[in-house]
């Protein structure tokens, strides 16, 4: 953890609303996709995430490090999602499988957290480059991307190269994961 983020956590613990907002922004998308694994409705997912963050705010002061904070956050998200499912279960089968799902939850946390870091790196790209990477990842060809964005195939190529150089810097080993980016 960087010095900066250590500082962020201690400012949050001391009751800084700005620090809390920063943390909310960092974790909001990951929190939503985590909860969305259990609950399909967008509005409900937002509600669960909202209540969890309110709860986290009330617990400020007790987070001694980031591992504990993150574990607590996911734990609370998971419990709140379960709580919702219990209360709104239509039949016994719905959500029943979720109850004893610890292994999957633990896997999900790892995936969400690593993705959070990767997406954070990608989102640092300028808009067009970010869009190109996103579309490339989704399996679009360069021609399709060029057509969609109204730019030339050559621009797509050069933007992609720049984006890739940037990502390689941000996430040095990312290219191992996203070999697709190598085919410029």
């Amino acid at each position: 953890m960087t010095k900066n983020s250590v500082n962020l956590l201690s400012r949050f613990n001391a009751g800084s609303e700005r620090a809390f907002k920063e943390m909310f922004d960092d974790f909001f998308p990951a929190a939503c996709s985590f909860v969305a694994r259990y609950i399909p409705e967008v509005a409900t997912v937002e509600d669960v995430v909202q209540e969890t963050f309110i709860h986290i705010w009330e617990k400020r002061g007790m987070f001694t490090d980031w591992v504990y904070f993150k574990a607590y956050l996911y734990r609370a998200l998971y419990n709140n999602a379960l709580y919702y499912l219990r209360g709104h279960r239509v039949t016994e089968e719905v959500g029943a499988g979720v109850e004893d799902d610890t292994g999957n939850v633990l896997d999900a946390i790892i995936t969400e957290e690593v993705r959070r870091e990767i997406i954070a790196a990608i989102s640092k790209l300028p808009t067009e480059r970010g869009k190109i990477i996103e579309m490339t990842l989704a399996g679009n060809s360069q021609e399709e991307i060029a057509r969609e964005l109204g730019i030339s195939v050559n621009t797509v190529k050069s933007q992609k190269r720049k984006a890739y150089a940037f990502l390689r810097e941000e996430l040095k080993n990312l290219f191992v994961l996203f070999w697709v980016l190598l085919y410029l």
């Binding site: 980031w66 591992v67 574990a71 607590y72 734990r75 633990l106 790892i110 957290e113 870091e117 040095k172």
Partner: peptide, 22 residues
């Protein structure tokens, strides 16, 4: 016990992210 497991997952995620950043 569960909280310890959650913490373990977070630690693994941090290691993987770190490895991505080299």
């Amino acid at each position: 016990v569960l909280m310890e497991k959650f913490k373990n997952s977070i630690k693994i995620a941090e290691l993987i992210s770190k490895s991505l950043r080299g």
